[in-house]
């Protein structure tokens, strides 16, 4: 093998090795950090694991929001209109969090069947429904008509 080819081989090997390491590490990191989405119905059916970080989404049930008077703890129910699950959150809720609004929350189920959220997301746009929530509602057959009309706009 002449020196030039040898040099090229080293470079190619370096690239292949580097790329393989990168892909391997990426896939590992990816698998460690996937958060699966569950609808309230999935959770009520015990499909969601306990204690693992998941995402859940639905509509905030009207009249269900209870604030603690002394701390920043908030409890509310989240529904796909078929089933609902209680969410507990400590902290400051986003501006667009409102009763009747679609939200997505990150967190984990505790042993009492309460979803302990560490993050609650509501969207910039009041007509916007998170796609996961929309699909969960469609699956439960409970998509409100006026929402569907908005979605079709």
């Amino acid at each position: 093998m002449n020196p030039k080819r040898k040099q090229r081989l080293i470079i190619v090997l370096f690239i292949v090795f580097g790329a393989a390491t990168a892909v391997g590490l990426s896939m590992y990191a990816l698998n460690q950090n996937i958060n699966l989405f569950y609808s309230p119905t999935d959770i009520v059916d015990n499909k969601a694991p306990e204690g693992t970080r998941i995402r859940a989404g639905g509509m905030v049930v009207e009249g269900s929001v209870i604030r603690d008077t002394q701390s920043l703890n908030v409890m509310f129910d989240m529904t796909d209109y078929a089933n609902s699950v209680t969410v507990s959150f400590t902290g400051i809720l986003p501006d667009l969090f409102r009763e009747g609004q679609g939200i997505v929350a990150q967190g984990a189920m505790n042993s009492d069947g309460v979803f302990e959220a560490v993050e609650v997301l509501a969207k910039h746009d009041e007509n916007y429904m998170p796609p996961e929530v929309a699909e969960a509602l469609e699956k439960a057959g409970k998509m409100p008509d006026q929402m569907r009309a908005k979605g079709a706009e």
Partner: peptide, 24 residues
């Protein structure tokens, strides 16, 4: 795009958290 691919293949809805990006 991984969440999009997973969704398109019908394997469920997932999201990738910031720890993935930070760790790499």
């Amino acid at each position: 795009i991984y969440p999009l691919i997973v969704d398109a293949l019908g394997w469920g809805k997932i999201s990738i958290g910031p720890p993935y990006f930070n760790s790499l």
